[in-house]
Amino acid sequence: MNIFRLVADLLHLASIFILLLKIQQTKSCAGVSLKTQALYFVVFVTRYLDLFTHFYSVYNSLMKLFFIASSAYIVYLMWKPYRPTYSASTDTFRAEFLIVGAALLGLAFPDSWHILDILWSFSIYLEAVAILPQLFQMTRTGEAETITSHYVFALGAYRALYLMNWIYRYYTEGYMDVIAWVAGAVQTILYADFFYIYLTRVMRGRLFSLP
């Protein structure tokens, strides 16, 4: 564990609390993509099956359980109690293409041919693009509530710190994970536009609104 990875994981954790806070405070999930949230649930369930086969640390297991449980809870909140506030008409990205694409990539370039590693690879490819429905929705509406943009920023910062974690691990441990690196780099690049708008607008106390 290094400082980049620890802060990244904590930011990932924080992003989920920010999202739950937004839903609770505004009593609404308006502007939040249910498709992105459902994709994250699929990502966590398919990646963390090793909970049953491999023990790394208490930290590792607790985080995995939290990510699975919290993503299931968020999907439930948006699906049932907060359904009337869900902006379905702007959440129109075709998420099924992302699932099919990630599945094809997982089968074409799996980490190994063990079923758990194919699912792991699928989850890595899917996580790389899972934010797209959310970014697409923000582009369609042209703006987002400030707290929603904080949520997306925390997620993007978590990914950016993972890149630094990999550089650090490569030089200190000789650690290599090409699949995670390529997918992680793609994932971080997807946030580039968002980062720019967030830093130039939201940080100055203005709405996340497209120029």
Partner: peptide
């Protein structure tokens, strides 16, 4: 199966 890659990251 001991040659399977280890994924210690979240």
């Amino acid at each position: 199966s001991s040659s399977r890659p280890v994924h210690d990251e979240l």
